[in-house]
Design a protein around this nucleic acid. Sequence first.
DNA 1: TCGTTGTGCAAGCAACGTATTGCACATCTG
DNA 2: CAGATGTGCAATACGTTGCTTGCACAACGA
Lengths: 105, 105
Amino acid sequence: MTTAVVQVCSALGDETRWQILQMLGEQPRSASALAGELPISRQAIAQHVEVLIGAGLVERRRHGREVRYVPVGAALSAAVEQLQAAAAGWDRRLEMLKRRAEGPR
Amino acid sequence: MTTAVVQVCSALGDETRWQILQMLGEQPRSASALAGELPISRQAIAQHVEVLIGAGLVERRRHGREVRYVPVGAALSAAVEQLQAAAAGWDRRLEMLKRRAEGPR
DNA sequence: TCGTTGTGCAAGCAACGTATTGCACATCTG
DNA sequence: CAGATGTGCAATACGTTGCTTGCACAACGA
């Protein structure tokens, strides 16, 4: 099993997916609609969106015959929190190491 | 040119790299030292670390003949901020869309 | 000085990810 | 109903990534 943070970052670590996610943030829409505005095929987009869904970053909603994709804030927030927690831990620890190195001079 | 956020996420979107970064956060060390604690070769680790450096997440420091790698908080913080800003924008916008949809009932 | 230890560079390879095309099926509209 | 539109599934091509092995070179220590 891959960590949630890694999965989210992996999903966001692609130019096209990041762009798709931002477009969905502006206005939720279908894969076909996205395909009309991006230089890649609808299926390519569908695969990207699938990855985003897998990471919990996007949700699918049926509207009649079309499927609109909507970004979900929760997964992203959770990942961001973990990232911050990790970074804070490093800072604390590295500061300690630094002080210990400078102390006995 | 790839966005900073994407580059950082791409670097973090790998189980092994995330593990390496956490280990360096605990205690900065050399590629050889890492190789002794991970099930992959030193060169594999060197390549991973190179990616982390490329994203600005890690810094190299020579200590005599060995090279120690130290995590850098700044790049991560910057990326995290952008992520939060983006997410906040979606929430605001999607809330508006939702209200507009519920209003005329 | 000689052996050991830590790095750097390069070639090779298997596996994965991105994007494509083709076709079948459901659904809305005139 | 018939055509247009939106979706789902599958097979395939191709570049990228992750990891390995092999060798050369620099630096520290006995």
